[in-house]
Every structure is written in C-alpha cells, then in structure tokens.
Amino acid sequence: MRACPDRTAALALLRKYNSEPFHIQHALTVEGVMRWYAQELGYGGDADFWAAVGLLHDVDFEKWPGEHCQKAPELLSEIGCSEALIHAVCSHGYGICCDVEPVEEMEKVLFAADELTGLIGAAARMRPSKSCRDMEVSSLKKKFKDKKFAAGCSRDVIREGAERLGWTLEELMDKTLQAQSSCEERVNTALEAL
C-alpha cells in the first residue's frame, strides 16, 4: 500500500485553494472514478492512493490556472504528500502545461479519464435524468464527435489517453462511464453537505 494523505487533510487542502462548486464537484468525481479504476484494474490495495491523486489533481487550477501542475507540488507539500503522489498529480498535465510524463498505469488512467469525466458530466446535465447512470456509450460517442459540445474538454487528450493505456476509445468511454456512475450519488450528497 502506498502512502497517501489522510482524506480529511486532503479535502481541507482542496477546499483551501478551491471554492467554486464546479471545481469541488470535479475533484470529488475524479476521486471516485480513480477509486473505481483502482479496484477494477487490480490495484485495490492502493485504492486510497489512487483516490487521493484524483481528489487533489487540480488543487492549483482555480487560483493559478496559468501555473497549473507547476504550483501543485508546493501546495501538496503542505500536507506531506509523497513524491509519488506529487508526480502522479502533475503527470495529468503532460504536454498541456508541464513535462511530467504519465508512466505508471494509474497516471495514464488519470490522464485519460480526467477530461472524459468533464465530457460525461456535461452530457449528463443535458439529460432529463441529469445523471450519467442511464447514459449509453453510443450517446457519449455522439457528444464526443460534436466538437461544439463541451468544447473545453479536449478530444485529443482523451484519444491520447486511450492510446497510452492501449485501450480503444470505446473501452475508455465504457469504463469511465461505469466509474462515474458508481460515484455520482456520493458526489452529489457530498456537494449538498458542503
């Protein structure tokens, strides 16, 4: 099991530097998605580590968007995050805002799933149910192909992420949709409590 910060400390750090509900929701979503992936891919013993990376991956984005993934190490050191966790957090910005390459499978999953969770979330908000739990991969693929829809979600990063994992785009979509469905209710409950 890899060392990771206590979740209470991690959440407090996130909230210290992030106040926008959208950013908090994204962090909680990626936390849940990463925990699901850890279990799914056989890293259950490190699920807390994967989840902590997901929770903290954008810790610096709201206040320092121009220094995203560059300010993060300083902030993460406030709660004694390991070098492995800091590397993982920074690696999701590879080729976009930093040169820390995603090497481990967990880092590749974060790189691939981060942008896709945003696309899934945007697509869910358009549905009558406001949920991704009743969304089909075919519906998500249509939204993916519509470049005007959720234009801020980089299709190139999602494609590159699938390639880094050796997965098809459809496989990445299917798994991430399952992952996001698994934590959607918990995230909504947590947001209401904030």
Rank of each mutant, 00 (worst) to 15 (best):
Q70G: 12
L172N: 01
E31F: 00
D134Y: 09
R15F: 01
K71Y: 09
R186W: 13
A3F: 05
R125D: 10
L110V: 11
V89Q: 00
N18K: 09
H23P: 01
E62I: 03
I120W: 04
E136R: 12
E163G: 11
I86E: 00
L76Q: 09
V89Y: 02
A9P: 07
K147Q: 14
A3R: 14
L140W: 06
F61I: 08
C90V: 05
K175E: 06
L116I: 05
G45T: 00
V89T: 07
L13A: 10
P65D: 03
S77Y: 08
P21T: 03
K130T: 10
Y17W: 14
M106G: 11
V33Q: 10
T8W: 02
V187C: 07
V30E: 02
G42Y: 05
E101H: 02
S181A: 15
A179G: 12
I79W: 11
R159C: 07
D48K: 00
C81V: 09
W167S: 03
T117L: 03
R164K: 15
L119G: 08
F111V: 03
R35W: 02
A190Y: 10
A123Y: 02
R15K: 15
L41N: 06
A190K: 14
R2V: 04
C153E: 15
Q70K: 15
C4H: 14
M173I: 10
K141C: 09
A190D: 09
M34Q: 11
S91E: 01
A3K: 10
A27G: 02
A151I: 09
H68K: 13
E62H: 05
A151E: 12
A51F: 01
G93Q: 13
A10L: 09
F49C: 06
C132V: 11
D60M: 13
L28G: 02
P5F: 04
P128N: 08
G80Q: 07
Y17S: 01
C69G: 09
L75Y: 14
Y37I: 03
T29H: 06
E115S: 03
Y43V: 00
R2T: 08
D48E: 09
A88Y: 04
F149Q: 10
S129V: 14
G121I: 04
L172R: 11
Y37R: 01
S82L: 12
D46M: 04
A9F: 06
K175L: 12
I96Q: 09
D46F: 11
A150H: 12
T29R: 10
E160C: 10
L85M: 15
K141M: 15
V103I: 13
S91T: 01
V100F: 00
A190V: 03
L191Q: 04
